[in-house]
Design a binder for these strands. Sequence first.
DNA 1: ATTCTTGTTCCATATTACGGAACCTTGTTC
DNA 2: GAACAAGGTTCCGTAATATGGAACAAGAAT
Lengths: 259, 259
Amino acid sequence: METPVKSLERAFRLAEAVGQAKDGATVTGLAEALALPKSTVHRLLSAFVQLGYMEQDEQSGRYRLTAKWLSLVTRFLADLDVRQAARRSLEALAEETGEVVHLVVLNDGEAVYIDKVEGKETIRMHSRIGHRAPVHCTAVGKTLLAYRSEDDIRTILRKHGLARHTPNTITDAQALIAHLAEVRQNGVAFDHEENEPGISCVAAPIFDHTGAVAAALSISGPTERMRPRLAALADRVREAGAAISARLGHDRSDRETVR
Amino acid sequence: METPVKSLERAFRLAEAVGQAKDGATVTGLAEALALPKSTVHRLLSAFVQLGYMEQDEQSGRYRLTAKWLSLVTRFLADLDVRQAARRSLEALAEETGEVVHLVVLNDGEAVYIDKVEGKETIRMHSRIGHRAPVHCTAVGKTLLAYRSEDDIRTILRKHGLARHTPNTITDAQALIAHLAEVRQNGVAFDHEENEPGISCVAAPIFDHTGAVAAALSISGPTERMRPRLAALADRVREAGAAISARLGHDRSDRETVR
DNA sequence: ATTCTTGTTCCATATTACGGAACCTTGTTC
DNA sequence: GAACAAGGTTCCGTAATATGGAACAAGAAT
């Protein structure tokens, strides 16, 4: 099937080839590799140069990508940072607790799972990477909400509502907002079977270098396994969140929880 | 001045606009922002989607960039990582030792200088960023070679030879390969006036998160200044290499030098 | 049910990208 | 120094494509 903009396809095939070339690429080499006339290759390369996405080495004549491509993906780089910074902590927590550990970000007023490590004792859960969950009745969601402005919180709740998932679900906006003050105070949020019957969860925030909450980290499991050690798990997830925050360049001196 | 491929310019203006939009962008919003007809915007967005560089949120209809853009810039990300991870160590070493400190990568079987910090006592040297040097008679070159397979080493030596630079240059391939085993054993490589008369050098490897050698780090200076403290400099450069490796996610438990 | 808004499709045509050929530059060989 | 080779660059007639106005489709709001 033809692409709707053929020259765009050609241009990206070219950019990909240049991006993979170790020391840049030549006009002739690219023409051969892509089965295109040299004049076509030259014109596309010149266009990339003019737009600032490529440069030509004066001596060798080779073309290579410039750092301008990075400006397109700054949001991805931020997410990559968070995942990379968090991964070893997720693995350590899962290993230590035996329960499933999640990494979650706020997106369009919902909680989106971006990473997950299962512990030995994990039972099947609904969570999977890419999955979206409500914020009002999940520990990660409440964590992500807690550090937003009250205006933001109200907007999100207006948009997504506070649907009852279990008898424990908080369905009153004002009650939830008051509860979120406790979440900030404790430095962790709990889900006492608010989202799913029989499942409990504890989550902590991950701050980035600007002091904003970049993600939330959680430990989840069946209530009968979680309840006896909930305080200890809260300590662990809070510490892990702080360690990841430090790796992201967060200065811990503000927002230190009252202990 | 007209760009040689007008639709490429339009396409990148579009991609930049989408990249900057916090929660993706709409067809109508982009058409307004870029003063383009909706059908033009829609066609370009569809082309990006087909190429895999954008996706459309099913519910909201908003377009956003995908992670595929990252595959274009993997080389930048890798080089950025190494340089950024190393820079503070280079500065610290130069400050502490007074000698010039280099960061070097292997490229097409040659040593390429990608960063350099001069100490107080530096005399003029041939090294400059972008400069290529032989691998058989430089400390950084021997470091970069030492962790390659013997097949790779032989291929590189066959391609580049073992030209004599000074009376101390190792010019026999078998002797060099045996010497490289010592380099691995010691965790550092020395250049005892093998590349340039009157100049000595000590270098250590920098490992990345996969365990591969991403770069080498070196301290160089006039032999009469280097010789009296060579063992101490070796310790320092080995430690700096290890610190940078850790920053790149290298697990130190393997390849730990015998001490 | 109607209206509004936004996304999507169609297609005649204006515009642009194409690519072959020629030219230019630099390096190599004799 | 001349000739040759290789690769980069430019030109321009034209084929191919991208354009964009109009219409349509779908969903939301009233």
